[in-house]
Simulated assay, not measured.
Amino acid sequence: MGVPEKRKAESPLSDAAASPKPAAPGPSSPGPKENSPTHASSSPRSEGRSPTPAPDSPAPELPGVMSGAHWLQQGLPETDTDDKDSTLGSDVESSTASISSSILNYRTINGRTYHSDSVTDGEYWAPNDQKMLGALEIYYHSLFLMTDKQLFQAPLKDNIQHAIDIGTGEGFWAIDFADKFPYCDVVGTDISPIQPTWTPPNLRFEIDDATKEWTFKKNFFDYIHISFLNGAIEDWGNLYKNAYRCCKPGGWIEHFDCSPIVSCDDETLPPDSALATYGKILDEAGRRIGRSLTIAHDGTQEPGLKEAGFVNLHTKQWKQPLSPWPKDPKQKEIGLYTYAAVTSDLEGVIQFLFHKVMGWSTEEVAVFAAHMRQEMKEQKIHGYWTWKVVYGQKPEDAE
């Protein structure tokens, strides 16, 4: 994806680093991560963790939500022949092709793989293969633009010594942060070994599951960064308490996450559209696996961090356009990168949650994805996702 200019010229992920061990058969998914969030190869496994439940057969329909059978009945969408819409579609496809050629020309698609179940007890919904990593790289750049190219919001001092990125995924943020703070020791943790080998000398990656007891030193980190862990954490309160224990007095924690619920401010989002259905299905899937996928709408961050002991809390929110529909040039660019990222691997994002958790057939998932891509391409729906960051500080006098 469009990351800072210096990384575009860097060498691609090595085959060894980019080809993690496939998970047990089955589809996948925020935790993502996407890129998955946490890891802990050294700590013991927690007991009693139940696997992802098998979907009911047939899967019960949700009130007001179009089912998989509905989308299968619609068939694949036809290309819109309206001149105006065709022009819009042509423009977005041309721009997307330009992004792909300049940023993703070194990527290869090896096949769908997920994290190894030897690392964590729970199943993460996002693939960890090259196709998903390519989409995440573009997505990272969309977020980079959305936040005005700010890697963090907390008021960090230039002389911080230790920082950690929980759920680092492909490691793009951790690499940029380590470059910005060359004298700070930076650690990035994840449940999949999908990070590049070309990293700044002050950065190291570790396979670790953050949902388990943290083994890092008490009062150690000046800054703890948590990002995009939708669908990865069962007990946010426990994670925040681990972070508080390992955070240095006066140090900062920052949690940046989103909600897949599509919002719209001008009534262009039909309730029976694929985009309206998307977030509702993911919300229900998160409930079924016991790991919320709607963090930015749940009100989880502020009270959880406060209960853990953090003070001086601050909150900020952003709107991420789903396609280049905005008239504002900056928002249009953000929407273009979001569109490019999501449509390049939409099946990878939804197949685990829609198919394995919600019980949709493979054909239903494919047809739904086609309709959602078509809606994003046409740009008639002015939808966006909400992102929220909450950052806070461990009291200076904390023991």
Rank of each mutant, 00 (worst) to 15 (best):
R45H: 04
E10H: 06
S28H: 09
S43P: 11
T79K: 14
D85W: 08
P60Y: 05
P4E: 14
E61D: 14
K8Q: 14
T79W: 09
E47G: 03
S86T: 02
T38C: 13
S42M: 03
L62F: 10
Q74Y: 12
Q74V: 00
P37V: 09
K84A: 10
A40K: 13
N35Y: 09
P44L: 02
V3Q: 14
P37K: 11
D56M: 08
P63H: 08
E5V: 07
D82S: 07
E61V: 06
A9Q: 07
P20M: 04
S46H: 13
P32N: 11
P60A: 06
V3E: 13
G68A: 05
E47V: 05
K8V: 14
T38S: 12
H39P: 15
A24S: 06
S86K: 09
S14F: 00
P4S: 12
S28F: 10
G64K: 05
P27K: 15
K84S: 02
P60S: 01
S11M: 08
D85Q: 10
P37L: 10
P32I: 04
D56Q: 12
V65W: 05
N35I: 07
S14Q: 00
A23N: 11
K6E: 15
E61M: 10
A69H: 09
G68I: 00
V65H: 00
G64M: 02
P63E: 14
M1A: 02
A23K: 12
G2C: 06
S43M: 09
D83W: 10
P25H: 06
A54G: 08
S57M: 02
P20N: 05
E47R: 08
S28C: 04
D82G: 02
E10D: 11
P53T: 01
S36G: 14
S36E: 09
D83T: 12
A24I: 01
